[in-house]
């Protein structure tokens, strides 16, 4: 990267939020495994377990409100993501898709819940782990379904192409299936959460900084706060959408691995 440009803000004391604001210090002593995101992950697991145990414990024909909430999420994942996309063998994968969807959804929404306000997936390692699990699942499913040689042949050699062209196309297929798919699926989730959180920080911290400035700046500050609040609702939309897209892509990859031909 050549052509580096340096802008200097004139006499401003405002430090814009940066990626350093995502590196939270450990809560207990020096142990790196006690940072906020780790506790949020554990908290989300407990929250989801308790919620769905409560929702499914006294299942009845006339559902309670709790049971209805749990069942509508489940039915949505099963019908719209499982049945529509994977096809007739979808029931085996519904537990995984459902866990993935609710887990990512809760962890994303932590980003706008007051007092928590940190989307766990804005730390990239969590997104990578989810991407790697999905990567393992869809390749395992494909190999089990087709046998390893037919699965690899299906991936590597597109039918109906003259032989020399395979030199050009096969590396692209390998790169897509082994690198680009797990990478993009986790980067998409990470980047959306990261950018959204940064955006909220900029507007709220900027509004606070304007409030401490001159009278003219104080008048502008409510607009920054109002825009920050509006963006919070926009973030809610993005967070739900990203949980949906991650699950959708997982279902698409599983469906593609199960498909009989391209």
């Amino acid at each position: 990267m050549r052509s580096l440009v340096v802008f200097r803000a004139e006499g401003e004391g405002f430090v814009p939020p940066s990626s350093k604001d995502f590196e939270l210090p450990p809560i207990f002593g020096d142990n790196e495994f006690t940072t906020k995101p780790i506790f949020l992950i554990l908290f989300s697991v407990i929250l989801l377990s308790v919620f769905f145990l409560m929702a499914s414990r006294k299942a009845s024909v006339v559902p309670s409100k709790l049971q209805f909430a749990g069942e509508s999420v489940y039915a949505y994942v099963r019908n719209d993501l499982g049945k529509e996309i994977i096809g007739h063998e979808f029931m085996r994968f519904v537990p995984y898709l459902f866990t993935l969807f609710t887990f990512i959804l809760v962890n994303n929404i932590f980003g706008i819940v007051p007092l928590i306000q940190f989307p766990t997936m804005s730390r990239i390692s969590f997104a990578y782990v989810l991407g790697i699990i999905t990567f393992g699942v869809f390749h395992y499913v494909g190999i089990r379904h087709h046998g390893i040689f037919k699965y690899m042949k299906d991936i590597l050699f597109m039918p109906g192409v003259p032989k020399p062209v395979y030199i050009l196309l096969t590396p692209i297929e390998i790169a897509t299936y082994l690198v680009v798919r797990p990478l993009t699926i986790s980067l998409r989730l990470f980047a959306n959460m990261f950018a959204g959180h940064l955006l909220l920080m900029i507007f709220i911290l900027g509004g606070e900084h304007l409030l401490q400035g001159a009278v003219g700046l104080k008048l502008v500050s409510p607009f920054a706060f109002a825009f920050g609040i509006a963006l919070t609702f926009f973030e809610l939309l993005v967070q739900c959408l990203q949980a949906y897209i991650f699950t959708l892509l997982t279902a698409l990859y599983i469906g593609g691995a199960l498909a009989d031909e391209h």
Binding site: I85, P171, I172, A175, T176, V180, T184, G255, G256
Partner: peptide, 24 residues
């Protein structure tokens, strides 16, 4: 399975990206 084709955009971006990255 019409829904699967509707989501082809994601696979297309994946192919283009890996083609550019590998041969580039």
């Amino acid at each position: 399975m019409a829904r699967r084709d509707d989501n082809a955009a994601y696979s297309i971006v994946g192919y283009l990206l890996s083609g550019l990255l590998f041969w580039g």
